[in-house]
């Protein structure tokens, strides 16, 4: 684990709030690995959906603080306890973020549309029975319904609506979520994708995927869909040939970012 991520202290916790785990660490490592790009990106507004303990948004603010002051941070969670823990985590590290208890980004869809330059999401992604999604208690922090995709599939169109022209999305996914299908969906909306960190633990294989708007990708995907009926297969194929290469390159240095 890098020294920067280890600096985050959790000053507060709650039995119903997700404690930072391998997925949280992998997401922060992805942000660290991409730090130079993030600084060049000059984001004005950064947002986290489902901030839980506040570990990720606090890390992001600390990663950018020195060289990119004056970024505005927004974090949402559906769990009011999470908001309280997040606030305490932020305060302990003397960083600011505006917190909103919301279902993904409820209330923000109109006025924040097209303004978010960086969005980070570690969603509930574990495959579970559908009725566990959004249930009471801590289970709703990980329960993702069929293929773990219920909440992810609701987040994607909202992210596309909120992201600015130059906006980036960093998303945690599990192999069971079918990441290449997620990339394909985003590709149809004009987003290119890259795996920033890939990490396998005993139980799960995590991918942190970065999405960004790419004119060529959109044209490409449209053409493929309209010109050729077998397009999805072809898009998938090209993604699949790209993925192992990226994985290979990334896995050789994903743990050496600190």
């Amino acid at each position: 684990m890098s020294s920067k991520t280890a600096q985050i202290r959790l000053v507060s916790s709650h039995p119903e709030v997700y404690e930072p785990c391998d997925d949280s660490f992998a997401l922060v490592d992805a942000l660290l690995a991409d730090r130079a790009h993030l600084l060049e990106h000059h984001p004005s507004i950064c947002m986290e959906v489902g901030c839980g303990s506040g570990y990720v948004i606090t890390s992001l603010a600390l990663i950018l603080r020195q060289e990119a002051p004056g970024v505005h941070y927004i974090a949402t969670d559906i769990n009011p306890h999470a908001m309280r823990v997040t606030r305490e985590t932020l305060e302990a590290h003397e960083v600011n973020a505006d917190l909103i208890i919301a279902d993904i980004a409820s209330g923000l869809d109109k006025r924040l549309k097209g303004l978010v330059d960086v969005m980070v999401v570690n969603p509930p992604y574990v495959p579970t029975p559908e009725d566990e999604v959004g249930s009471e208690g801590i289970a709703s922090a990980w329960a993702g319904g069929e293929n773990g995709r219920s909440v992810i599939d609701r987040i994607l169109p909202i992210a596309v609506n909120l992201l600015s022209e130059k906006g980036w999305l960093y998303l945690v996914t599990l192999t069971a979520n079918n990441p290449s299908e997620i990339c394909l969906q985003m590709r149809k909306k004009g987003y290119a994708a890259r795996i920033v960190v890939q990490r396998s633990t005993d139980e799960e294989s995590l991918h942190i995927i970065k999405f960004w708007r790419d004119i060529d990708t959109q044209v490409d995907a449209k053409e493929m869909v309209t010109v050729n009926k077998s397009a999805p297969a072809r898009v998938m194929e090209s993604l699949l040939t790209e993925v192992p290469r990226l994985l290979f390159r990334r896995s050789s240095n994903s743990n050496s970012t600190g």
Binding site: I78, N79, P80, H81, I101, G134, S135, E136, G145, S150
Partner: peptide
């Protein structure tokens, strides 16, 4: 808007 059940059902009772 959606067929899936979501957040509404999980809205914590504390609110």
């Amino acid at each position: 808007q959606r067929g899936v059940s979501h957040g509404g059902g999980g809205t914590p009772k504390t609110q």
